[in-house]
């Protein structure tokens, strides 16, 4: 690990100032992904700004009838919250399907959204990776790509976003509250937080350098049956091959987003509208522009069948 200086902060003003003051500064919250990447020297911050003194650990009701989740709320705390379990079951289920108990106790809500891909070519510093070293190429394309993305990819990158929680946040139309480096507040719809790779896969989110996520807000409950169906290589503690986050109403209408198939949670409102027509119609719409590899083309029929299983479960 490269050496770095370290500062605890007790106010968001101080956090923003610290991040501006030192070139190469990074925020750290739970640290479960960042420290892993620092050990491999994939992340090499010169300065760490420890956010854990900021509070931001409350889950509060909003005047609009939703919930405002502090950026530092742990994955365990969020999954166990009675309001989340009752009104946003898909979020609780997605969180509980991810990582291990130890990791969920430490991982934060904002950090979960900002975690980096688990593409093995991103992790292996001997391999070309445009995300890790822009312009170096993509060893995943033409490599072993079973786990990688089938849609939303580019000629520069076929990595997936690894989060389960983010897929549920997308289906719930969450918003991300931030503070810009100058201290002004902005709200980013979750649909606009994660960027597609295009020619610049190293630019993963809409956040500016030094911008700080302070909360994630959920709109009021929409009812329906909440399901998170995750397909993975072992029964627990593995990333999704394919996952489905769904909210299904009694009449068969609803919303659906996929995980494990794209560089961001994969949802299309046009596909939601096809839910009453069944899994094939929805999958065809979601994958209209899919460009799978020979290794991961199986994800298309697998996603369709996972959608079918999810819709069948919703009817029971």
């Amino acid at each position: 690990m490269k050496s770095f200086t370290y500062q605890r902060v007790n106010s968001t003003d101080d956090a923003l100032a610290q991040a501006q003051r030192v070139p190469g500064a990074k925020f750290i919250a739970g640290g479960t992904n960042l420290l892993d990447l620092m050990k491999l020297e994939i992340e090499t911050p010169a300065h760490l700004v420890d956010l854990n003194g900021l509070g931001l650990k409350a889950i509060e009701a909003t005047p609009e009838g939703g919930l405002r989740i502090g950026a530092l709320v742990s994955n365990t705390q969020l999954a166990a919250d009675m309001r989340v379990r009752r009104d946003y079951g898909v979020l609780s289920r997605a969180l509980l399907a991810g990582a291990s108990g130890q990791l969920r106790n430490k991982a934060s809500t904002a950090g979960n959204l900002l975690q980096r891909t688990r593409c093995p070519y991103f992790y292996d510093t001997n391999q070309a990776c445009n995300k890790r070293q822009p312009g170096s190429g993509c060893a995943a394309i033409g490599g072993v790509s079973k786990q990688l993305a089938v849609v939303g990819t580019s000629d520069a990158c076929i990595a997936t976003h690894p989060s389960d929680m983010a897929v549920a946040m997308r289906v719930l139309d969450a918003s991300v509250e931030t503070l810009r480096p100058d201290g002004t507040r902005r709200v980013i719809p979750i649909a606009e937080l994660h960027r597609l790779p295009g020619a610049t896969p190293q630019v993963e989110t809409a956040l500016a350098s030094g911008e700080l996520i302070t909360a994630v807000t959920l709109p009021g409950p929409v009812g329906g049956t909440h399901i998170y169906h995750k397909v993975r290589d072992r029964a627990s503690y593995a990333f999704a091959v394919v996952s489905v986050a769904a909210i299904v109403q009694r009449d068969g209408s609803g919303r659906v987003a996929l995980g494990g198939v794209a560089p961001r949670p994969w949802r299309m409102e046009g596909a939601d509208a096809l839910m009453p027509r069944g899994a094939k119609a929805v999958a065809d719409a979601l994958f209209a522009d899919a460009r799978p590899t020979v290794h991961n083309a199986f994800k298309l029929p697998l996603a369709e069948r996972t959608l079918a299983a999810t819709f069948a479960q919703a009817r029971t």
């Binding site: 479960t32 892993d36 108990g101 130890q102 106790n105 430490k106």
Partner: peptide, 8 residues
């Protein structure tokens, strides 16, 4: 319970 290897 946490993983002590993934925290400073």
């Amino acid at each position: 319970r946490i993983n002590s290897c993934l925290t400073l």
